[in-house]
Simulated assay, not measured.
Amino acid sequence: MNQLVRAERICLIGHIASKAFGLAGLLLVVPHAEAILSAIAASGQNVFQWSVERSMAGGGVIDILFGLIAVSIYAYRTLGIKLWLTFMLPAVCISLSSELLGTGTGFPFGDYSYLSGLGYKIAGLVPFTIPLSWFYMGLSAYLIARVALQTVKPMWLRHVGAVLLGAMLFTSWDFALEPAMSQTSFPFWYWHQPGAFFGTPYQNYAGWFGTSALFMAVAAFLWGKVSLQLKRSQLNIPLVVYLSNVAFAAGISLAGGYWLPVSLSIIFGVIPALLLWWMAQPNVTKPAMEETHGMSVAPVEVALK
């Protein structure tokens, strides 16, 4: 277990560091590339250009892979292999299907295409890293909401509330993400027909909410009546992953002057995530058993070593 925790922390640090370096590159290096080239010797210009191109082409892939591994280890260690896989597989499959449908037909997000920078494209349309990011951000958002509502009754209201709140947190990330990824100096995708909301169609946000709510609902159904008795401290990893991803997108968007989308991301994403995290129980005093018509179901093992 100690080795898993160590690997999880290394990957989480790598995820955050990759975002920090990427943010610095996009805000400081790319906009001033010509000035930097003119200031260095001719012999070093080719090396500089090559390093910038390689970092821009591979940085997003490394960042997402670090996030995937960190959250996967966390889910395996904290929730167990069954709950981890029954969230990851629906999240990846449903989000990939929505992205392929979206890039092919324009539904449900709008008419858009991916550029380079996020890795190999599945069917020549969707980078393989995109559904992976949907998984680790989706699980982070859903767990924060689900654990905060653990004491809500009846049970169906708890599950519905967790799905809706989780999808809201997930979609709020996209308020800051869209301008950063499609409207700034180094875009990762573009809209064939720019929308009314800072270049993004309103339809896109409905697509994000619907897709994330769908795979969260599928996972909630597969998880059944399992009880997630996690401490507040055990939600630190999902919270850090969520906040660091929002911060990365917000930093780029703010540099481009997109303060309103970032404000919406903070109001409907960051602040609710912090409040929901705080609502989680600070301690677990006794093993909790789920009510199922007079029967008890063993709780999920949440030991943290």
Rank of each mutant, 00 (worst) to 15 (best):
F175W: 08
T184H: 06
L27Q: 01
I94Y: 13
M289N: 05
L235Y: 10
A180Y: 12
I16R: 03
I144T: 03
L235W: 09
K153H: 13
S233E: 11
R158M: 12
G124W: 09
P201A: 04
S263G: 13
A280D: 03
A75Q: 01
I40G: 07
V30Y: 09
Y190S: 09
S133F: 12
L28S: 01
W50T: 12
G199V: 01
F209K: 05
G80N: 14
S263C: 12
F186P: 02
L143R: 05
N236Q: 14
A141D: 00
A20M: 10
G166E: 01
D111R: 13
A75G: 03
A303H: 15
H15A: 11
M289A: 10
E178Q: 10
S38H: 11
I73Q: 04
A35F: 11
L164G: 06
L260M: 10
I13C: 12
M216Y: 15
A167V: 05
G119Y: 08
V71D: 02
L27H: 04
A196S: 06
S244H: 11
V297C: 11
P238I: 08
C93D: 02
L85H: 08
F197W: 06
G119S: 09
N46S: 08
T105L: 07
N245T: 15
L143A: 02
A24D: 00
P201I: 03
M295N: 11
V163F: 12
S51L: 10
M56P: 03
P179S: 05
W189R: 04
L26Q: 05
F197I: 01
D111P: 07
Q3A: 13
I130F: 14
S244M: 13
L65V: 12
M279G: 02
G44C: 00
P194H: 05
W277Q: 05
M181L: 10
A196G: 00
T184S: 06
A17P: 14
A180G: 07
T78D: 04
A123C: 08
G207L: 06
E8H: 14
Y202P: 04
S185T: 09
